Amino acid sequence: MNLRQIEVFRAVMNTGTTTEAARLLHVSQPGISRLVRHLEVQLDVALFERRSGRLVPTAEARELHIEIEKVYRGVLHVRDVAAHLRYGTHSTLRVLSSANTALELVPRSMAMLINQYPTARVLFESLPTREFVKLLVSEEADVAISSAPLDHPSLEVEEIGRWLLLCALPTDNALVTQKKPKLAKALAGRLVAYSAEAPQSAVINHWLQSHNVTRNVAAEVRSGLAACAVAATGVAVAFVDDLSARAHKADGLVFASIEDAPSFPIYLVKNRHRPLPRLGEAFSEIVREQLKQLQSTAVPKAGFSLLQ
C-alpha cells in the first residue's frame, strides 16, 4: 500500500461512505470507489461489505485499520517535523551575551523571536566573553552578542551596532549643577574601575590612558550595571556604556554625555563552519532591529554634557 491508498482507506473507515470520504479528501466520489476496489483486488481481500449505501468494514479491514493508524501517526509526526524545519522551530536556539547586551537588547530580541515562533525555545546565558570562543567553536552555542571583539579562525564576527560611552554621576555631584562642566573634573575624582573580565574594561582603560588619567580607583566591578549602582551611592564616578545606563532603574544617578565621546562595536558572532538554523537567522535580524530601536530613544536621567 502506498500513502495515498492508506489515506483513502483511513477516510472510508472513519466516515463509513465513499461520498463522505471524498468530501473529506476533496476528491470525487467515483475516484474513491475505484481506489477502494483496486485495493481489494491488490490485496485479494474483501475489505468492505456494501449495505444500503454504506461500507461496512470486514474483520480484515478492522485489523488493517489498527496497523494503519500506527503508521498514520508516524506520517503526521514527519509532517510536523518538516513544518518545524521550514519555520525554524525544530530546535532550541542557544544564545550567549555580554553583560551589557544581556540587560535589555537580548531579552527584547528573544521576546520578539518567541512571539514570531510560539513553539521556539531559547537557551540564554550571560557569560564573560572569554567563554564565548570555546562554546561557539565546540558548537555548544549557536550565536553570541558581544561587546568585545573575539578572534578565532572558526568564528565569523559581524559588527551590528555600537555602544556609546557616558559618565554616571551621583545626583549631588558638583558637576551636575555647573553651567559648563568639564570632563577633566570628572576624571580627576574617585572612579569606578572594571575588572579584566568586563567587556568594557579594555576599551575604557584605553580611553582613560588617552587622557593621561592617573586613576583614583574607589571600587572595581565586572559590569556596567554594577558600576551604575556604585556611582549611585555617591562614592565615585563611573564611565559606562549606554546599554547599561538605559537599564539602570534606581534613583540617585544622572548620566552625562561626553563631548567627542568614543563609541565601540557590538558584535554578532557565530561559527563560520556551522550555518545558523532559520531560527538563528531570524534572531540575528531581530537583534539588529531592536538595537536600532533601543538606541533611538534618549537615555533616561541624561540631560547635560561634559565638555573637553
Rank of each mutant, 00 (worst) to 15 (best):
L155M: 12
G161N: 02
R272D: 06
V254S: 09
S28R: 12
A111T: 07
H38L: 10
R54C: 02
T214F: 06
N271Q: 07
S91E: 15
A184S: 15
Y117S: 12
G74Q: 14
D142G: 04
S296P: 01
R94M: 02
N271G: 06
T58R: 07
A148K: 04
V75N: 00
A193C: 00
K182A: 13
R190Y: 07
L35I: 11
L243I: 08
R162Q: 15
G252P: 10
E20F: 02
V192I: 11
P128G: 07
G303R: 10
G224Q: 08
L127G: 02
N2Y: 07
V254T: 13
A202I: 05
I66D: 11
V56A: 03
S210I: 00
A202S: 13
Y72P: 06
R79A: 14
E159K: 14
A302W: 00
Q293I: 08
W163S: 06
L191R: 03
L39I: 14
V41Q: 08
L136P: 05
A46S: 14
S109A: 15
S109G: 11
T233N: 05
A196V: 11
P275Q: 15
T18Q: 08
K292L: 03
H65W: 15
I114K: 13
H90Q: 08
T15L: 02
N173V: 02
A298E: 13
T101C: 12
H84C: 03
V213H: 05
L183Y: 09
G252Q: 08
A61R: 08
P265C: 07
E139K: 13
P275R: 14
L123H: 13
L135Y: 06
G53N: 06
F124Y: 09
D251Y: 03
F304P: 02
K179R: 15
V176Y: 09
Q293Y: 03
R272I: 10
L208M: 15
I286W: 01
S195W: 00
F9M: 12
N212V: 01
S28T: 15
F304E: 04
V157S: 01
I204T: 10
L166Y: 15
E7W: 05
A229Y: 05
V157C: 10
Y117L: 15
L35C: 01
R4H: 08
E158A: 09
N14K: 12
E285M: 12
